[in-house]
């Protein structure tokens, strides 16, 4: 891939928490409209990669670029604002604001952070809740929703920022098997619409279906990456083979 046309570019990114080096030189380029799945054992640094891309975690060395934003050079939350407008994130534990209804959760940031017109945002929020099939739950509080419903509200909230990229951090890991499907359906639609997505996931079947590319991480490195068919059917690295042998 030509490096200059990448929307997101990580180059030799390292990150340590105390003495523990989580990322040992991650390089990754994601094109506009691409869906990339990151798979790998727990503790291999998958979630940390996502958090570095939108600046939630500062990196120790290397560089991260998203569009025109040089994330590694940003120091303050204020500088990161335009970046966070462009990059939304959906979390494993949904992370909805418990004191606000589903509709308010979706509307809050566009109104309060981006300063968009309230009425326009409300129309957008209702449209997005309809998209994730939760129109009738608009006035419910997160505490009144099931895990799968909360996660779909979280997806609507991420979309309401009108981002170019969405980062999905093990978004089905905390869900019941029955509700996993409804969330994956919502994500699949976004990928089909051409939204750039980076997904950390343990759903191998889903990764194979939606991803343009799959990256396998282990011990803070991307061991192997390629089209899903190659990674799942003909893994080259023994570690990839071992991992897939355990989970598939």
């Amino acid at each position: 891939m030509n490096r200059t046309d990448a929307l997101i570019e990580l180059d030799q990114v390292t990150k340590s928490f105390g003495a523990f080096q989580v990322l040992k030189g991650i390089s990754l380029a994601v094109k506009d409209g691409e869906a990339v799945c990151i798979i790998g054992p727990s503790g291999s640094g998958k979630s940390t990669i996502l958090r570095c891309i939108n600046g939630l975690i500062p990196i120790n060395s290397g560089s991260i670029r998203v569009g025109t934003h040089e994330v590694h050079k940003m120091k303050t939350e204020k500088e990161m604002r335009p970046l966070r407008h462009q990059v939304s994130m959906v979390f494993q534990q949904y992370n909805l604001f418990p004191h606000r209804t589903a509709l308010q959760n979706v509307m809050m940031a566009p109104v309060q952070v981006l300063g968009h017109d309230r009425r326009e945002v409300e129309a957008r929020a209702r449209r997005l809740l309809a998209k994730v099939r939760l129109s009738e739950k608009a006035d419910a509080y997160p505490g009144q929703l099931s895990g799968g419903q909360q996660q779909r509200v979280a997806i609507a909230r991420a979309l309401a920022m009108e981002p170019q990229v969405i980062l999905f951090d093990e978004v089905t890991a905390a869900l019941d098997p029955e509700t996993v499907k409804e969330v994956l359906t919502a994500i699949r639609e976004l990928v089909d619409e051409g939204l750039t997505c980076i997904l950390v996931t343990h759903e191998m079947k889903f990764a194979r279906e939606v991803a343009d590319r799959v990256c396998f991480t282990d011990h803070g490195r991307i061991v192997e990456s390629g089209p899903p068919a190659q990674i799942f059917d003909a893994p080259q690295d023994p570690r990839t083979r071992e991992f897939l042998g355990q989970v598939l």
Binding site: L56, E77, K78, R81, S88, M89, F91
Partner: peptide
Amino acid sequence: AVTEAARSLGYSRWQRFRRI
């Protein structure tokens, strides 16, 4: 997690405190 979500949505320190 709530704080992390607010940061990821671009809330400034003060907005985060006031709104969430």
